[in-house]
């Protein structure tokens, strides 16, 4: 059973994304296949060069880089949203890959979770 966890909100604005990331890490801890999708405003999680110490927060970019070590299968980015936020797919941190969010895309997963 492969789970897709969707992060569709901006980083640092609220805690939803961190909760979603925690969920992904927990599934990975039990060796459950899990993929993270950054959709809409969520693609800004993947912008390289974040530095959040002045906000007294930890960089979500750094936190996210632990995903593959913990066993998250893949990090995907919403192709349309990348354009909207002026990100190019080759600059994304964690070598996330862009994807078209077609109905067929979602059908690859047994469960889709959006917090």
């Amino acid at each position: 059973m492969h789970t897709l966890i969707v992060i569709d909100r901006l980083p640092y604005g609220d805690w939803h994304g961190r909760e979603a990331l925690d969920m992904a890490f927990s599934l990975a801890a039990f060796d459950r296949p899990v993929t993270l999708l950054f959709r809409g405003a969520g693609v800004n999680w993947l912008r390289p060069g974040q530095s959040a110490d002045q906000l007294s927060q930890k960089s979500v970019e750094r936190n996210l880089s632990a995903a593959t070590i913990f066993g998250v299968s893949a990090l995907l980015a919403d192709k349309a949203a990348l354009r909207q936020y002026r990100l190019s797919s080759d600059q994304l941190s964690q070598s996330a890959s862009e994807t078209d969010l077609t109905p067929a895309f979602y059908k690859q997963f047994d469960a889709v979770v959006v917090l």
């Binding site: 925690d22 890490f25 927990s26 990975a28 801890a29 039990f30 930890k58 960089s59 750094r62 936190n63 880089s65 632990a66 070590i69 913990f70 066993g71």
Partner: peptide, 22 residues
């Protein structure tokens, strides 16, 4: 080193074991 790089503690025991194994 792990904390310096990822700015988090391994969130659970299992992930701690995974990080060490890695």
């Amino acid at each position: 080193q792990f904390y310096k790089q990822y700015e988090i503690s391994p969130p659970s025991n299992r992930l701690f074991v995974k990080a060490v194994k890695e």
